[in-house]
């Protein structure tokens, strides 16, 4: 699996995700600077977490117009899998590769803690190493993780089974207490219509080895490895 990790000014989880990818696949990913206009041949493109451009204007708004993103959008149209984590998810919504927007958390607070998520489906390239409806624990670390989309978009996402992960309690119930960001429908992550693009606010790379206190993020990278070799 040849992966490329895009590095924006202000990215701060680029090296974490590179380590997670290397540990799972045995190959260090290519790190690609945002100002570049081409990517090495890639089976997977990762947009990492962080605070690209200091979150100026809106989270992900500036990064969405980086030179490299033109190439990412072009490759996305050709089916290259794309994983956007946290700020990467925000960048994906700002480019229009995923619908909706990540707004300021309803509590107005930066939230950094473990949350329980329900894996909504396990038949995608990102999720086949999970059980369907499995409850996993992955940390979030964001100020703008409050997923919002208009009613029509939400209905389409639900109808097309495009919710990847939802914040739930340990029993798998999507209640308000399990959704500190205030996301609509407890959404933690969504797919594009072909399930080749995943954007999620939780950080699977932060729970991909024992030393970090959890392994619930690792199956996501193992799923990708199985499909992309």
């Amino acid at each position: 699996m040849r992966a490329s990790v895009v590095v924006f000014p202000g990215s701060n989880c680029d090296r974490d995700v590179a380590v997670a990818l290397r540990n799972v696949s045995g190959h260090a990913p290519d790190m690609v600077w945002h100002g570049d206009s081409s990517l090495p041949a890639s089976d997977l493109i990762v947009l990492p977490g962080g605070f690209s451009y200091g979150d100026y204007l809106r989270s992900g708004a500036m990064a969405a117009h980086s030179p490299i993103m033109k190439e990412v959008v072009r490759l996305a149209a050709r089916g290259t899998p794309i994983l956007g984590i946290c700020n990467g998810f925000q960048v994906l919504t700002e480019t229009g590769l995923l619908p909706g927007v990540l707004m300021c958390n309803a509590s107005l607070k930066f939230i950094c803690r473990n949350l329980t998520l329900r894996v909504e489906r396990n038949d995608t390239i990102f999720s086949r190493h999970y059980q369907e409806k499995e409850i996993i624990t992955i940390p979030i670390a964001n100020h703008d993780g409050n997923y919002f989309a208009d009613r029509e978009t939400l209905d389409r996402l639900e109808g097309e089974n495009r919710i990847a992960f939802r914040y739930t309690n340990a029993r798998g119930e999507a209640d308000a207490a399990s959704n500190p960001t205030g996301s609509q429908n407890n959404i933690a992550g969504i797919y594009d219509k072909n399930c080749r693009i995943l954007g999620l606010m939780p950080h699977p790379e932060r729970v991909s080895e024992d030393l970090l206190g959890g392994l619930d993020g690792k199956p996501l990278f193992e799923s990708l490895l199985e499909v992309l070799h």
Binding site: L57, E94, P99, G100, V101, M103, F148, D150
Partner: peptide, 9 residues
């Protein structure tokens, strides 16, 4: 349209 506003919200 392109940058200053996000017309979703």
């Amino acid at each position: 349209e392109k940058l200053l506003a996000n017309t979703v919200i």
